[in-house]
């Protein structure tokens, strides 16, 4: 079975010059976990989710030093201060630039391996040879395909 048989094709996307606030609204109102960021030619530039926004709120010296966890520190208003700053930024500033990308003819095995090895979103973005976005495969799509267990579809004939 190939990626293009399990992927979702009707996609909601966002554009790099939209503000973070606009994108957060879409994510919240439509209960999406992730939005692909594409340019005017539908070329995939990156992806955003709640975590990519939150990761910009925590000071970098906490994330990139010896302070992996800081159970002793109070809130200090840092998150809110940075939140107010970040919502007016453009999506391009906060997006994940290297989301997991797969080809439409890749096998499900390959897509699953790619998701586990590289993913930060539980989603793989399916692109054509021009890197234009044509679909998204979620981890749940793969599980659904497996549970339907149709041998003829599962094994590449």
């Amino acid at each position: 079975m190939k990626a293009n048989l399990v992927m979702t094709k009707e996609l909601v996307v966002c554009h790099p010059d939209q503000t973070v606030l606009e994108v957060l609204k879409v994510l919240r109102e439509r209960s999406f976990h992730v939005l692909p960021v594409v340019d005017e030619n539908n070329k995939l530039l990156g992806a955003v989710n709640m975590l990519s926004m939150l990761s910009k709120l925590v000071p970098e010296y906490i994330l990139n030093g010896y302070l992996k966890s800081i159970p002793y520190a109070p809130d200090m208003g840092v998150l809110r201060k940075h939140y107010k700053e970040i919502i007016d930024h453009k999506v391009v500033d906060i997006m994940e630039k290297n989301p997991t990308v797969v080809g439409e003819n890749e096998s499900l095995l390959s897509v699953t391996a790619a998701l586990i090895s590289f993913d930060r979103f539980e989603y793989a973005f399916v692109v054509d040879k021009d890197h234009a976005l044509i679909g998204i495969v979620a981890a749940s799509d793969i599980v659904r395909a497996l549970s339907q267990l149709d041998p003829e579809v599962l094994f590449d004939a």
Binding site: P59, G65, Y66, L67, I70, A73, M76, V78
Partner: peptide
């Protein structure tokens, strides 16, 4: 300094 500098920045942020 890898241990102390980030704690210092937390404190100066506070």
């Amino acid at each position: 300094v890898l241990l102390i500098a980030p704690v210092t920045l937390l404190i100066t942020d506070a």
